[in-house]
Amino acid sequence: MSLEQAIRLLIIGIEVGSIYALVALSVVLLYRTSRVLNFGQGELALLACFLTFTLTSRMGVPLWLSFLAGLAASAVAAGAFYFFLMRRAKAQDPMGLLILTLGFSLFANGGLSLLFGVDNKQMPGFVDVIETWQIGNFSISKNSVLVAVAGLILMIGLYFFVQKSKIGLAMRAVSQNPEVAKALGIPVNVVLVSSWAVAAILGSAAALLLAPAISLNPSLMLDPLNKGFAAAVVGGMTSLPGAVLGGYLLGIIEAYVGNFVPAFKLALAFILVILVLVFRPHGLLGEKETRRA
């Protein structure tokens, strides 16, 4: 493998890795605050994509505005889903809630297919996906750079939100000890609604960054979501930095392995998951969890 190709694969790995990292972050954020996995994450992201697509391509709204509208819509939908369904569900055990999100996912996917159709749509992007920058005889895809930089900005934004803002502090408190947080008068519902909304924004941003490079259809998020879950498990379900590490790691390994053994690419993420679960079940950066009976 030439150096040039090694760099090209690294860039692809980082690009794909930032998508995985964003999805993994949304998974971990939600898992930490509300102890649940949301299978509906993909449909929330689809909602953002379809809305952005419809606003831009059909109604001529500027791309950045429809982009923001898409993110806002999925945030509102996620918050509402938590507030009206998850919070009121009588089955408060994680398994029951998991099934609830699975049901929501199937229902929403059907609904979105019905509304927007199952055909492949060309999602508009901020840059043309085939455009490249030439540095000497070396070319870099503009879209790859955009995805990587946008992903990085979102992750830094999330860091400051969680570490420095008041609601971020409350989120960390709720994730560690919900009952005590409640007794201190922290508005747990507001905290949980916002973490659902923020998780939806992360997942939707990943989808909106991904969609222009491939085509938009109701199964757009199937693969990224699987890989994002895998990245979250690899990094450690309880660790936000772990999710980022897991995402990039998976993206980069996949790029290199996929180059040599393309058939192996799909299974790779799950082989990593199996290895992690066998040898380091709490993930690379996650903390060992002592389970209360």
Partner: peptide, 12 residues
């Protein structure tokens, strides 16, 4: 409330 077992947010 000062909860039983002190109720620390240990990682904060």
């Amino acid at each position: 409330l000062v909860p039983e077992g002190r109720g620390m947010f240990k990682d904060l």
